[in-house]
Design a protein around this nucleic acid. Structure first.
Lengths: 234, 234
DNA sequence: AAAAATTTAAAGTCTACACAAAATGGAAAT
DNA sequence: ATTTCCATTTTGTGTAGACTTTAAATTTTT
């Protein structure tokens, strides 16, 4: 089914612009014609051209400045953009059956490294939760999480035997700022046991620090099973 | 300086909507009023409301469907979005002096695992380039790259002694599709030597497969120095 | 020359309106 | 009861035009 034909869509314009860049017709660092001229060339309104170019700029292909015009970026800012799934969803997307198990959960005083990392006051109380996520009976992820009690007082009453702290937190304080770190770490004896890998195995790890309006809420260290690969298309 | 006051900007609407979600006024899974109603409530046009809600949907806060309306996502699709820097930029951003060294560069027949991975025809020729990136004299990244000669014939004449294949490729065939993978791998004897770490050390690794209009162009395996952390804010 | 003020070109955003496309919910037919 | 069809609602996108904001370029002043 073809779209009604005599009108130019912003998507067509995006396509065309990208093609002209790819083909070298519009070289990196060169200026595009201004919106008015493009509108005439594409026989559409400036509004439509504006949307197309604005989105291409958001996507990192163009640079736009008032009065200066629109420029092809020489080193396109390729942006990886991937969604952070809940463990449950990730396991189920792979066709596995998600299973959760609490390892330990206890309130304690924040250790020094944690206080430093989250900029806590000395001696602030935190809840330390450790748990496992399985795909069927295969270990999938070991979670080592610290929750600042003062930032989320309800956590004292929370019960993590049935559902994990992540799902609980998402329910309780939804929209937060997050700092996400990826790294490779080494399985120590304890972790090797939980993930069922040899000690010393390289483990893909993500650390997630969550803030609610400037207040540190939680630090989670997530250790993935051996061989885990995080993939995204750009 | 205050903006001209009696008009509502789409940014204000975005802010307000987010606040109402945060405050619990609009619960997860609930329907928002439709665009027409919101336009009246904000005393602006539907166009402006549309832009605000569309962007919030792009950012993963809302779900919109024709006829069904606009819904608050219960598990907001938090999207990590980070730019892929060139190694040079990354080193220099950390205050280091970037240095590049070619290890080896040779044309050969694609090994079977590579043919399979990139969906090459059997026996297709590739250029195999290995090189090091340093920050000052500290190893920063070891790069192991395969380039499909048929997709980039110019590569036969390319000289990688002075600049790395990545910078060369970015110049030569700018806008491509990329599949990006993150994983933790183990330093074998050779890699341990290049990165100056003990053998067996966990190494943060990214693999990048690049396609140009469906044609496989290159597979790069990038091994980062010990302790490397990739961080992003959401 | 250098600095300050002015002009002006380009993108940014809004209004107002129209029609298109999708998908839901209900009505009709099987 | 199930399927097919249709009306209706809601978002998606376009046109036309206006005013705003930014910042580059020019002119004027120091």
């Amino acid at each position: 089914m073809t779209r009604h034909s005599d009108t130019t869509s912003y998507k067509d314009i995006k396509q065309t612009v990208l093609e002209r860049i790819r083909s070298g017709e519009w070289r990196p660092d060169s200026l595009l014609p201004n919106e008015q001229e493009l509108a005439i060339a594409f026989s559409c309104t400036r509004t439509t051209v504006n949307r197309a170019l604005r989105e291409l700029a958001d996507e990192g292909f163009l640079e736009r400045r008032r009065k200066a015009g629109t420029r092809v970026l020489s080193a396109p800012q390729r942006q990886a953009r991937f969604t952070i799934p809940l463990v449950r969803d990730e396991v189920e997307a792979m066709g596995g059956t998600y299973r959760y198990a609490l390892v330990s959960s206890e309130a304690c005083t924040a250790p020094d490294w944690l206080s430093a990392r989250l900029a806590l006051r000395a001696g602030q109380d935190v809840m330390h939760v450790r748990c496992m996520h399985y795909s069927g009976n295969t270990p999938f992820q070991y979670e080592d999480r610290w929750i600042v009690i003062e930032s989320v007082p309800q956590v004292s009453q929370a019960d993590f035997t049935g559902t994990g702290p992540n799902e609980w937190l998402v329910e309780t304080i939804p929209f937060t700022n997050v700092e996400l770190t990826f790294l490779a770490s080494r399985a120590d004896a304890s972790l090797a046991g939980f993930l069922d890998v040899p000690e010393g195995e390289p483990i893909f790890t993500t650390e997630r620090i969550t803030w609610l309006q400037g207040q540190p809420v939680t630090l989670a260290k997530l250790y993935f099973a051996a061989g885990y690969r995080m993939t995204t298309q750009i």
